[in-house]
Simulated assay, not measured.
Amino acid sequence: MNDTAQQPIGVFDSGVGGLSVLQALRAELPHERFVYLADSGHAPYGERGDAYVAARTHAISDFLCAQHHIKALVVACNTATAAAIHEARVRHPQLPLVGVEPALKPAVAATRTGHVGVIGTRGTLGSAKFARLLASLEGQARFTIQPCDGLAHAIERSTAHPPTATQDATEIRALCAQYTGAMGPFGTEEGAIDTLVLGCTHYVFAQDILRDLLGPDVALIATGEPVARQTRRLLQTAHALACQETPLGADAVTVFTTGALEPLQNAVGRWLQLPARCCSTVDL
């Protein structure tokens, strides 16, 4: 073990969507400390330009390195990964850095009909990085790509209310129905889409609605678990895994937002079962 082993892992997203990745990271690495930043004050990234997203990525990574001395950084946002991860690696060459991308390769392995659907933000699905990933799988499956304008933002907004509120759930369901309805038939019949890639970390928190709309036979593929495994591999290579003997609890997680505090507290309580005291605001 080296001296960095007890330092936290940094994680960030444009908002609360990356909490789905943090959830997977905590399951894979229960002995680690985490600092998560939700850039909700500048969301949604998916409808911004690359230069804006890159500037936010650099501001956040600089903050996490300087103020929290992170030992690794997980960019838990498809849009930020596509727009800025190459620059972030140049900017922080010493830092193990993991990005996320739509899980097309696992989807190709999972599909039985050979038809894969991909939903994501316009920023992610229109990026050169995504185009290269798609081209690398040419001939291995048929892909139907659907930008979902407004869906990540609707999921983000839903955290402003108690989990029993129905207005936001109705909006999220309507958007999911609209976009999946535009993609063509789902199911196990020949030519139907039997595998759907959730190409935005926010969408994991709409998977119950998607499951209800699409039925039990359509596989939903997210990126949290592969990202968590890759983070473990990089930390092992760097001899930087934490050495605690027992899993750490809620106090091992610090969560910041550049937006309103209450929605973040609602989100971490609802989805990660973390107490409100874990959360605070930051001006960044």
Rank of each mutant, 00 (worst) to 15 (best):
D168C: 09
H86P: 00
T254F: 04
T170Y: 02
G259I: 07
A250N: 01
R89G: 15
P44H: 08
A51W: 06
G126A: 13
L64M: 09
Q244R: 00
C279I: 10
S158K: 01
Q265G: 04
R26Y: 15
A174Y: 04
H92K: 00
R56P: 09
V197M: 15
G117Y: 12
A103I: 13
G17D: 12
G46V: 07
E225G: 06
I60L: 13
K71P: 02
G49T: 00
A238M: 03
A66Q: 13
T81F: 01
H161C: 12
F256P: 00
D283V: 04
T254L: 11
A165W: 10
D208Q: 15
H239K: 10
P147W: 01
D208I: 05
A51E: 15
R277E: 09
R233T: 08
A238W: 00
G191W: 05
T144A: 08
S61W: 02
A169V: 00
G49P: 02
A242V: 05
P96R: 02
A160F: 09
V255E: 07
A152S: 15
E28Y: 04
T124D: 14
E47C: 07
D208W: 08
G123V: 07
L284E: 12
G181E: 13
V255W: 02
A192D: 13
P247T: 02
A54G: 07
E245H: 09
A103R: 04
F12G: 07
L134G: 06
P30L: 11
